[in-house]
Design a binder for these strands. Structure first.
Lengths: 151, 151
DNA sequence: AATCTTAATTGGAATAATTCTTGATAAGCA
DNA sequence: TGCTTATCAAGAATTATTCCAATTAAGATT
């Protein structure tokens, strides 16, 4: 089931719209993701959230992340066998994983392109999600590598 | 480092070219992947390979899959938190994951499109890998759903 | 405000995929 | 044939995540 979100709604409204409650824990997890928009793992979210809600448990962080993604407020980012990462950027974008420094960078969509124009779907598929990811070296690490090569 | 393969080489030659040995186990794992070109997990490869090499261990299957992917003969396919799957299709393609029946389907590239034309790379990135995946319902399951809705 | 109902949180145990370790085996070369 | 090194096997260890059962908290109702 595709998760659709009305972007004019606040997170609270979205949560309530599903018959769920906006608890301190959920808000704290959501705030952490919105605050520093890198792509933290569940454990990283956990350590950050504890600054605000010191009694929160890791299980609750997992629960909160589940409900937030279920409501379409947050997206899960997977890369190889690494722990899942979480991203509050709801605009369509891809991810770049830097193999040198581990950074995860959002790549905004430049041209809207229908998937069917690029990929050959043999039959009547119904698409609910898609994910695009790149890996390699980010600009910073590429520059560093170029400099140390010159020496 | 991008893993490049000379498509005119046999798997044996590619393996040897890396100073590695083509053992019975490695060949059996490779043959399983080439034989039935679905996208088996390591455990599925394990059970299939045991028909030919009954003494093989799961650890060895993991090792073989690692060396084969390291040599660029096989690709790893990841989807959400599910176990890794393996794919011997070296042509550029995306994957479709059917949420109803679990099938994994290769989607060939229709139009070659430079990544930079579609996604906005803010700076000098160097891309070594990329992966595109879709999920939803495959043609078979879509048809089934349509039929049962009519009833 | 007190009570009720149900959702949410906790902490710990359980699970599952994968990796690591160590000793045995086998390849290929001198 | 012996030597060196890669590879394999079996099981233990690791790690991310999920599950479970008991407690706590929200929000609705009286």
């Amino acid at each position: 089931m595709a998760t659709q979100v009305n972007h004019n709604q606040t997170a609270d409204e979205t949560i309530h719209g599903r018959g769920l409650r906006m608890t301190d824990q959920r808000r704290a997890v959501y705030d952490v993701l919105m605050g520093e928009r890198d792509h933290p793992t569940a454990v990283e979210v956990f350590t950050r959230v504890r600054a605000k809600v010191p009694t929160i448990s890791l299980a609750t962080v997992y629960n909160c992340l589940d409900t937030l993604t279920g409501c379409g407020l947050v997206k899960t980012v997977t890369h190889e066998r690494e722990p899942a990462r979480y991203c509050p950027n709801l605009k369509e974008h891809a991810h770049f994983f830097c193999e040198a420094c581990g950074a995860v960078i959002d790549l905004p969509l430049r041209t809207r392109k229908r998937a069917e124009d690029v990929w050959d779907f043999p039959g009547e598929f119904s698409i609910s999600h898609h994910e695009v990811s790149f890996s390699g070296t980010c600009p910073k690490c590429s520059a560093k590598a170029a400099k140390s090569n010159k020496r």
